[in-house]
Design a binder for these strands. Structure first.
Lengths: 247, 247
DNA sequence: GTCTATATGGAGATAGAC
DNA sequence: GTCTATCTCCATATAGAC
């Protein structure tokens, strides 16, 4: 089911197969930046930290990526392409296989979340770092409103259109907000901070992403239905109009 | 010619707190740190930025808080106390007013979220910055597993016990994970990155927290019920066992 | 593409006068 | 409590040899 991934090993073996040294230094910088940005955030890491961890010269980072911010964007973009290709392929398959009936909401949410959680769980340490970085970026006042729209929102738009088919007659604002809640639940999962491990006394583990995924889909599907079903009208939240003096 | 520096408003500081200059410098540092940490993250701001914005000397930050990390913790603690007091008071009132019957799930979630969203919406700019900082911290690999458990998890434990009363017979892991999803949805809301504004073409606004709250409560309540009702058994997520080779 | 060397500025923290 | 002065170290970025 996975989308075809670029065959790396074939071409790169110019002279030697060991890949220790032959792997382009540019990629090594991206790998190190991905890991360190995920661990300590963009401003928490220096270019020297990154090139040091990558085992290359300091000046190479600026040579390849222009600036530190350029490096962040390169890290962010690199895996987004592959990722969103598979998500859209799953969505298209799902929409093609139905016959006139509305698509299944759980299946749409699964197509949206599974490629991510599967890679974070089984894609290797690079993917895990990448998603932890996405978690931090998504919740960052500085970058969240810039990098996420640029690299992810076109795909999100496609999924939201599919959800509107699954929940006919729903208000678009309800759907956007419900997506927002899904996004928050999903990205906090990627952060893997270990908080829930302590909170639960060890019965839940941040690292068990399959455990999460099994629950995330029904949780969000139920939320979408509760919010977006035109038959069910919510009462305004209580006390919401109560005023409060400024601090 | 005696004093090297002009004596400013000699008595005012003691008699009333309203004066511009009389407010303790310690608090001014906390205010400036809160705002700047929220905007650019812990590592994105220097002590010089903070004391500069506060209009006080650089050395005062280290004098009052020992280190930059001490300052972050002080910012984080300051409002947590007030906040959690109100949340617990609401929860206690809610649990006292029922008569033998299970408490209402929506009411519990509302008691958990309303004090926060209300302050972010109407508590003034300090509160808004504070919650944006909480959003970033909660999703931070570096701080999320340390600062959140320390300052918030005792209260969260109380709410989780109440939810177990509201959803008798539920599995505790389901409840912890459902809380995790709620936490992610809530904190992404606080970040107010503007992403949903662009995504929705302007029909949703990050800043309209009442709009969010009206939807967050039913969304999460439905999710909790779908996940935690013992009558409803979920099938294992599809394809979750599929293996994937490391990148 | 890769490295040495350097330009230029800022970081966190503290000692000690007032 | 507050400020001056300073210690020591590190930041991003670029010029130019190889």
């Amino acid at each position: 089911m996975a989308a075809t991934r670029p065959q790396r090993s074939v071409v790169v073996a110019k002279s030697q197969g060991s890949a220790r040294r032959s792997r382009p230094r540019r990629e090594k910088i991206l790998d190190a930046a991905e890991e360190l940005f995920a661990q300590r955030g963009f401003h928490g890491v220096s270019i020297r930290d990154i090139t040091g961890a990558a085992g290359v010269d300091v000046a190479l980072a600026n040579y390849h990526f222009g600036s530190k911010l350029g490096l962040l964007e390169a890290v962010f973009t690199r895996r987004a392409v592959d990722l969103n290709e598979e998500r859209l392929a799953l969505l298209d398959a799902l929409l093609a296989n139905r016959r006139q009936r509305p698509p299944n909401l759980e299946a749409i949410i699964d197509a949206f979340t599974h490629p991510l959680l599967d890679r974070s769980a089984r894609g290797g340490p690079g993917w895990k770092s990448y998603f932890a970085l996405v978690a931090e970026i998504n919740n960052s006042h500085e970058f969240g409103g810039v990098l996420m729209p640029k690299h992810y929102d076109p795909v999100v738009q496609r999924f939201i259109q599919a959800i509107r088919l699954a929940l006919p007659g729903s208000d678009e604002r309800d759907i956007y907000w419900a997506y927002h809640f899904l996004s928050g639940a999903l990205t906090l999962t990627f952060a893997e901070t270990g908080r829930i491990d302590r909170l639960s006394g060890g019965v839940c583990r941040s690292s068990d992403l399959d455990d999460v995924h099994r629950r995330l889909v029904p949780f969000c599907a139920a939320g979408f239905r509760a919010l977006c079903s035109p038959t069910e009208h919510r009462t305004p939240a209580r006390r919401v109009a109560k005023s409060r003096k400024a601090s």
